[in-house]
Simulated assay, not measured.
Amino acid sequence: MVMNKIARVFKHLVHLVMPHRHVRRPFSTRTLHAIEEAILECEATHVGQLCFAIEGSLGLTALLKGETPRERALEVFSDLRVWDTEHNNGVLIYVLLADRCVEIVADRGISTRVPADEWDAVCRDMEAAFRAGDFKRGARAGTEAIGRLLSKHFPAQQLAARELPARPVIVGGGAAHI
Rank of each mutant, 00 (worst) to 15 (best):
D84R: 07
G66W: 06
P155T: 00
L159E: 13
L16Q: 15
Y94L: 04
A156G: 04
A116I: 06
V105I: 13
Q158W: 06
S28M: 10
V91E: 03
E67H: 09
K152S: 06
C123E: 15
T29I: 05
I35Q: 01
I39H: 03
T29C: 11
I110S: 05
H87N: 13
I146H: 01
V95H: 07
A7R: 15
M126K: 01
K5M: 11
P155E: 00
I6A: 15
V105R: 04
V17Q: 15
L159K: 15
I39M: 00
H22L: 12
T29M: 12
R100N: 14
G48Q: 03
E36K: 06
P26V: 09
P168K: 00
C42N: 03
L60N: 07
S111I: 04
H153N: 13
C101L: 02
E41T: 02
E37D: 07
N89S: 09
V14I: 15
V105A: 06
A175R: 14
F154M: 03
E75H: 13
I146V: 15
A53E: 00
G56H: 02
H177K: 13
A116M: 13
R30S: 13
R24C: 13
R8K: 13
A7G: 08
E103K: 11
E86P: 08
L150D: 03
A53V: 01
K11M: 12
R124N: 06
R140L: 10
C51F: 03
G109T: 10
E71V: 02
N4R: 11
E71I: 05
G66M: 08
L97T: 05
R24K: 14
R30I: 10
Q158G: 09
V169W: 00
A7M: 14
T85R: 00
E41M: 04
E71G: 08
A73C: 09
L80M: 10
A62G: 14
L63S: 02
G90W: 03
D117A: 12
T143M: 07
R72W: 08
C101Q: 14
L58P: 01
I110G: 01
A175V: 11
Q157R: 12
E41F: 02
E163F: 00
R148N: 09
V76Q: 01
I54K: 02
R100I: 07
V102K: 04
G90A: 06
S111L: 07
E55V: 03
R108T: 12
I39W: 01
N88R: 15
V14E: 14
R81P: 01
V17K: 12
E127C: 06
C101S: 15
S28H: 11
L16A: 15
